[in-house]
Protein backbone atom coordinates (compact mmCIF):
# COMPACT_ATOMS: atom_id res chain seq x y z
CA UNK A 1 0.00 0.00 0.00
CA UNK A 2 3.05 2.22 0.18
CA UNK A 3 2.80 2.76 -3.56
CA UNK A 4 -0.65 4.33 -3.14
CA UNK A 5 0.69 6.82 -0.63
CA UNK A 6 3.67 7.49 -2.90
CA UNK A 7 1.34 8.08 -5.88
CA UNK A 8 -0.78 10.50 -3.86
CA UNK A 9 2.28 12.38 -2.62
CA UNK A 10 3.57 12.56 -6.19
CA UNK A 11 0.30 13.92 -7.58
CA UNK A 12 0.01 16.50 -4.79
CA UNK A 13 3.62 17.53 -5.44
CA UNK A 14 2.98 17.79 -9.19
CA UNK A 15 -0.12 19.86 -8.52
CA UNK A 16 1.86 22.11 -6.21
CA UNK A 17 4.60 22.68 -8.79
CA UNK A 18 1.99 23.30 -11.51
CA UNK A 19 0.20 25.80 -9.25
CA UNK A 20 3.50 27.60 -8.57
CA UNK A 21 4.36 27.65 -12.27
CA UNK A 22 0.94 28.80 -13.51
CA UNK A 23 -0.01 31.10 -10.65
CA UNK A 24 -2.95 30.34 -8.38
CA UNK A 25 -5.30 27.95 -10.16
CA UNK A 26 -8.97 29.00 -10.43
CA UNK A 27 -11.71 27.05 -8.70
CA UNK A 28 -14.21 25.41 -11.02
CA UNK A 29 -16.75 24.86 -8.23
CA UNK A 30 -16.70 28.51 -7.16
CA UNK A 31 -16.73 29.76 -10.73
CA UNK A 32 -19.82 27.79 -11.61
CA UNK A 33 -21.84 27.91 -8.39
CA UNK A 34 -20.54 30.94 -6.53
CA UNK A 35 -20.35 28.76 -3.40
CA UNK A 36 -17.36 27.87 -1.24
CA UNK A 37 -16.41 24.20 -1.11
CA UNK A 38 -14.70 22.79 2.02
CA UNK A 39 -11.25 23.09 0.42
CA UNK A 40 -11.79 26.63 -0.81
CA UNK A 41 -9.00 28.96 0.29
CA UNK A 42 -6.47 26.21 0.87
CA UNK A 43 -4.11 27.43 -1.84
CA UNK A 44 -4.33 30.96 -0.46
CA UNK A 45 -3.84 29.56 3.04
CA UNK A 46 -0.68 27.72 1.93
CA UNK A 47 0.63 30.79 0.16
CA UNK A 48 0.05 32.96 3.25
CA UNK A 49 1.62 30.31 5.47
CA UNK A 50 4.75 30.30 3.32
CA UNK A 51 4.83 34.08 3.64
CA UNK A 52 4.70 33.67 7.41
CA UNK A 53 1.20 35.09 7.93
CA UNK A 54 -0.16 32.13 9.88
CA UNK A 55 -3.20 33.88 11.41
CA UNK A 56 -4.48 35.10 8.03
CA UNK A 57 -3.66 31.66 6.63
CA UNK A 58 -5.79 30.02 9.34
CA UNK A 59 -8.68 32.35 8.47
CA UNK A 60 -8.56 31.32 4.81
CA UNK A 61 -9.24 27.68 5.60
CA UNK A 62 -9.32 26.51 9.24
CA UNK A 63 -10.02 22.96 8.05
CA UNK A 64 -6.51 22.71 6.62
CA UNK A 65 -5.05 23.20 10.10
CA UNK A 66 -7.66 21.24 12.02
CA UNK A 67 -7.91 18.22 9.69
CA UNK A 68 -5.33 18.55 6.90
CA UNK A 69 -2.15 18.78 8.96
CA UNK A 70 -3.09 16.02 11.48
CA UNK A 71 -4.08 13.86 8.49
CA UNK A 72 -0.71 14.42 6.77
CA UNK A 73 1.15 13.56 9.99
CA UNK A 74 -0.97 10.42 10.41
CA UNK A 75 -0.20 9.38 6.81
CA UNK A 76 3.52 9.88 7.45
CA UNK A 77 3.29 7.67 10.55
CA UNK A 78 1.34 5.08 8.52
CA UNK A 79 3.94 4.94 5.75
CA UNK A 80 6.90 4.85 8.14
CA UNK A 81 5.37 2.07 10.24
CA UNK A 82 4.45 -0.03 7.19
CA UNK A 83 7.92 0.43 5.70
CA UNK A 84 9.40 -0.51 9.07
CA UNK A 85 7.37 -3.74 9.05
CA UNK A 86 5.35 -2.78 12.12
CA UNK A 87 1.52 -2.93 12.25
CA UNK A 88 -0.03 0.13 10.62
CA UNK A 89 -1.93 2.60 12.82
CA UNK A 90 -5.71 2.37 12.60
CA UNK A 91 -8.55 4.86 12.82
CA UNK A 92 -11.81 4.27 14.70
CA UNK A 93 -14.95 3.86 12.59
CA UNK A 94 -16.46 7.02 14.08
CA UNK A 95 -13.62 9.00 12.47
CA UNK A 96 -15.35 8.41 9.11
CA UNK A 97 -18.74 9.67 10.32
CA UNK A 98 -17.13 12.57 12.16
CA UNK A 99 -15.18 13.58 9.03
CA UNK A 100 -18.35 13.47 6.93
CA UNK A 101 -20.26 15.54 9.49
CA UNK A 102 -17.45 18.11 9.78
CA UNK A 103 -17.13 18.42 5.98
CA UNK A 104 -20.87 18.94 5.48
CA UNK A 105 -21.41 21.28 8.44
CA UNK A 106 -18.31 23.34 7.56
CA UNK A 107 -19.42 23.69 3.93
CA UNK A 108 -22.92 24.76 4.90
CA UNK A 109 -21.76 27.21 7.59
CA UNK A 110 -19.14 28.98 5.49
CA UNK A 111 -21.72 29.67 2.78
CA UNK A 112 -24.14 31.43 5.14
CA UNK A 113 -23.75 35.17 4.57
CA UNK A 114 -23.11 37.49 7.49
CA UNK A 115 -21.05 37.12 10.65
CA UNK A 116 -20.10 34.91 12.39
CA UNK A 117 -20.45 32.32 9.62
CA UNK A 118 -18.79 34.37 6.88
CA UNK A 119 -15.57 34.31 8.96
CA UNK A 120 -15.25 30.68 7.86
CA UNK A 121 -15.32 31.75 4.20
CA UNK A 122 -12.05 32.62 2.48
CA UNK A 123 -11.47 36.21 1.45
CA UNK A 124 -9.16 37.96 -1.00
CA UNK A 125 -5.43 37.85 -0.31
CA UNK A 126 -4.29 40.67 2.00
Amino acid sequence: MGWAAALTALSVLTGGIAALALGLPPCLFHSLTGLYCPGCGMTRALRLAFRGNIWASFGMNPLMYLIGIPLCLWLLVWVSRRLGGRPAPTLPAWAAWAALAVLIVFTVLRNIPGPPFCWLAPGPLP
Binding site: M1, A4, L28, F29, G39, C40, L71, W78, T90, L91
Partner: peptide, 27 residues
Protein backbone atom coordinates in the same frame (compact mmCIF):
# COMPACT_ATOMS: atom_id res chain seq x y z
CA UNK B 1 -8.78 -8.35 10.59
CA UNK B 2 -6.04 -5.90 9.73
CA UNK B 3 -7.71 -2.49 9.86
CA UNK B 4 -4.60 -0.59 8.77
CA UNK B 5 -5.51 -0.49 5.08
CA UNK B 6 -9.11 0.59 5.71
CA UNK B 7 -7.79 3.39 7.90
CA UNK B 8 -5.39 4.42 5.12
CA UNK B 9 -8.19 4.61 2.55
CA UNK B 10 -10.31 6.55 5.03
CA UNK B 11 -7.55 9.13 5.54
CA UNK B 12 -6.79 9.40 1.81
CA UNK B 13 -10.49 9.74 0.94
CA UNK B 14 -10.88 12.56 3.49
CA UNK B 15 -7.83 14.29 1.99
CA UNK B 16 -9.16 13.96 -1.55
CA UNK B 17 -12.68 15.05 -0.53
CA UNK B 18 -11.17 18.34 0.64
CA UNK B 19 -8.56 18.72 -2.12
CA UNK B 20 -10.73 17.80 -5.11
CA UNK B 21 -13.88 19.71 -4.16
CA UNK B 22 -13.03 22.57 -6.51
CA UNK B 23 -13.44 20.20 -9.45
CA UNK B 24 -17.20 20.16 -8.78
CA UNK B 25 -17.65 16.37 -8.94
CA UNK B 26 -14.18 15.17 -7.97
CA UNK B 27 -14.95 14.80 -4.29
Amino acid sequence: VDRGNSALWLALNIAIAILCCCTLVGS
